[in-house]
Design a protein around this nucleic acid. Sequence first.
DNA 1: CTGTTAGCGCGTTCAT
DNA 2: ATGAACGCGCTAACAG
Lengths: 341, 341
Amino acid sequence: MNDFSAAQRSRVTMLDVAEHAKVSKASVSRFIGEDRALLSDAIAQRIEQSIAELGYRPNQMARGLKRGRTRLIGMLVADIRNPYSIAVMHGVETACRQHGYSLVVCNTDRDDEQERQHLALLRSYNIEGLIVNTLGHHRDELHDLHREMPLVLVDRKVAHLESDMVGLDNPAAVAMALAHLEERGYRDVLMVTEPFDGTSSRIERVSSFKAQIEQHPVLHGTSIETGSELTAQLKTFLDTPGPGPKALFCANGVAALASTHALRELKCKLFEDVGLIALDDLDWYPLVGSGITALAQPTTDIGASAFECLLKRLRGDDSAVRTLDFSAQLIVRGSTLGDSR
Amino acid sequence: MNDFSAAQRSRVTMLDVAEHAKVSKASVSRFIGEDRALLSDAIAQRIEQSIAELGYRPNQMARGLKRGRTRLIGMLVADIRNPYSIAVMHGVETACRQHGYSLVVCNTDRDDEQERQHLALLRSYNIEGLIVNTLGHHRDELHDLHREMPLVLVDRKVAHLESDMVGLDNPAAVAMALAHLEERGYRDVLMVTEPFDGTSSRIERVSSFKAQIEQHPVLHGTSIETGSELTAQLKTFLDTPGPGPKALFCANGVAALASTHALRELKCKLFEDVGLIALDDLDWYPLVGSGITALAQPTTDIGASAFECLLKRLRGDDSAVRTLDFSAQLIVRGSTLGDSR
DNA sequence: CTGTTAGCGCGTTCAT
DNA sequence: ATGAACGCGCTAACAG
């Protein structure tokens, strides 16, 4: 009854339709594909009828094999549990579907070996394009793949890989954050970032921070990484006298989560003892303390743009590689009331 | 240079390897597949060498076409931005990879039409099995699909669909929640759930709640749905005198988010004015007010089990359909300090 | 407009 | 133990 292990699933094929409609396979193929216009109404109708009656569905595997076009896009994600990645992925998937593509998502769990396996896998399924949101080690494999198909980097650069990129305008986002903090009267800013593992956006944010702090004479700035020492480091920061009111600047949602945790451990009053502004805008930001001020990323647009980059290349666009930088949007909440409190 | 639009990507094929190793395609095929044992060491080595030199990767499309086995599992997700779905999906994906399968994820955004499209799509790609975490309307299509391949339902039942199911033991979870609330001195419980859209787990939780409240003479219980009226309804609940201390019981993470939002709008002190226990355990629960008490679901296990159900069926298991109910785990935080406060 | 033919890359009988 | 030949389901020439 239930023998799914049998290799041959007996599905209705193009030949079945052709015979049922008393036409050739070619005609059915034409009906399925782009050249339906070439068919006489009489035949077209017979085919349509047969397809409906038999419940025929073209086999994409076979189509892909023949045409070299699978309508499949691959996406390599470093951490599928990161809300940012999910949001971007959602944008990508929506754009894909709108253009008749499907998305194969591969989560690497930040593991290089898994990245390698997934790359091989995606290749073996003849995907037409690749969206990369991982560290992009395995330079060679990526290069090889990039010879065969278009590739776009999301939220990170990969050295020596000439491809389109889409992400956030990090210097501008940092500038927005610092301007806001300064305006609200904060003077001593600590940037909290996840550890440097090579993620370019992380590096960009911290280096922008350091560079811009130099330009803001009234601001004092330092930076630390999340980890087991975080609570202790925050304590040091809070206990050390500085030039004025203190605030944290979390470089992404994960850092914001960790920092808030640590502040609670230190029994800080959120956010009277210390201000906080965080990149990304997660749904729980409004719920913590007096609410966390955010720099929201336009994740849907970022995802959609990533796909559109691929699509352009697939359609033959051969122009120079582009970098798309989106702007963050400031959403003020209670965590940066500062002086005006 | 960059002509990705060309249909034929010139990849190295089995024939290339065969010629390079001066053997027949059949031998290469045997080397790739299960019957490597049938090859002489000499030939096996020549083939291995050639494969490495040429960087050959078997084409999964072609393999799937021939054998009817694509090593692809499909997963239909109602809402990819729901943390529960993500967590389960992560469990599924991990299990898939461990067994050489890949996962094609289709997000329906709670839209029936998208569910239909995705079903057709997955079918056209010859997936071997399907994991369903949507409303499962389109009964007919699901039935058709279920004739062709094994299918497992996650966190929801679908009427008249005889298939394996894996999810939470909802009555037991509700019992844990009520026992905990009673023990902590709460007497007036309001269950908050997302609107009834047919999701069976939602219905189960509420009906279990109502049934069990009857058995707890000391507890008073009512239930409401999230929506634009939520804040007003909560206010009514809080303002109406009851048999004793009040607490909310949120049926999942989304309801917890909405409820906490509403409580803040009402200027409630979290959680002195009202207790709160929520199903699911999201990473921000500890950060809100005094921390939200949770009933965590073993999402990784649920995902892995879902895949293993499929695998068993794929391997020919023809026994009666099973229902796997996992147990929730109580994680006590500040939101249910109750009397002991 | 329509049918015939020849593969796409691979697995699987058959022989040998 | 190995190779030749056929076909999976479909598209793309080429004829007619």
